[in-house]
């Protein structure tokens, strides 16, 4: 089984946020308004945060998305198993089972799970914009980055139809696909020959808050030599 992982090279990342919009469109994440974003209701599965890094004078932009922990603190606390570590190693969220208690959002040290405070709304003209592969979440449930899991499902089906094994290249999340600075590398961390495994083996690699023992599958490469 592949262990899907994402390597973010902070040296390459320019903080352009193309990934943020790509994710928003790909996953039908609703827009905010000035008021709702000020009230902490910005819906985003990936966002830029400014992080202090050793050896850097200034806080550097860092794209923050679900870290897809191998030992996720959020799944343990879910009272209904609505969030769980799937066999693909992706932390899944079953929207239809979620009761909206927001325990998982609070247990996550990265605060990357977001809650649908209100029913998702788009102007009528934008209804056609929805990605048919991704369900729109109702009000009152928690949602999060899924590594564009629907793309994995589609890639798997396509590979099956073509009578071959799924290759690492068949499956790329939307953020990785658009990254202009080529800062994001995605693939199977267990495949020793993959670019992502090579990047993850870099001496610059670190997992954010690894001291918490969450074992993220999102690996950052720090800036500098």
């Amino acid at each position: 089984m592949a262990r899907w992982g994402l390597v973010v090279d902070l040296d390459r990342c320019t903080g352009c946020q193309a990934c943020v919009i790509a994710c928003k469109h790909e996953n039908n994440v609703p827009f905010s308004t000035p008021a709702s974003s000020a009230a902490g209701r910005l819906m985003t599965w990936i966002q830029l945060v400014a992080v202090e890094m050793p050896g850097r004078d200034h806080r550097v932009p860092l794209p923050l998305m679900c870290q897809q922990c191998d030992r996720p603190p959020c799944t343990d606390v879910c009272p209904t198993s609505a969030t769980y570590l799937s066999t693909d190693g992706i932390v899944a969220q079953v929207y239809a089972r979620c009761i909206g208690c927001r325990y998982c959002t609070n247990a996550c040290p990265y605060v990357v799970k977001v809650f649908n405070w209100t029913p998702p709304e788009w102007p009528a003209s934008m209804q056609g914009m929805m990605n048919p592969d991704v369900s729109v979440r109702p009000k009152g449930v928690v949602e999060k980055c899924t590594f564009c899991h629907h793309r994995l499902m589609i890639a798997r089906e396509r590979a099956k139809a073509e009578g071959r094994e799924l290759a690492s290249e068949d499956y790329v999340p939307a953020c990785v696909q658009t990254c202009p600075a080529e800062a994001l590398t995605f693939g199977d961390l267990d495949d020793q020959h993959s670019a992502v495994a090579a990047a993850a083996a870099s001496p610059r690699a670190f997992q954010w808050m690894e001291e918490l023992g969450t074992k993220p599958k999102v690996i950052y490469l720090r800036e500098g030599e």
Partner: peptide
């Protein structure tokens, strides 16, 4: 707790789909 739930209509999921590692279920 029910007031706090985003989906109070699904509150019974804690009984139909219990996850025993959740302290919230211990609470229940």
């Amino acid at each position: 707790i029910l007031l706090d739930l985003g989906r109070p209509d699904r509150a019974l999921n804690v009984i139909t789909h219990p996850h025993f590692r959740s302290p919230l279920l211990w609470d229940v």
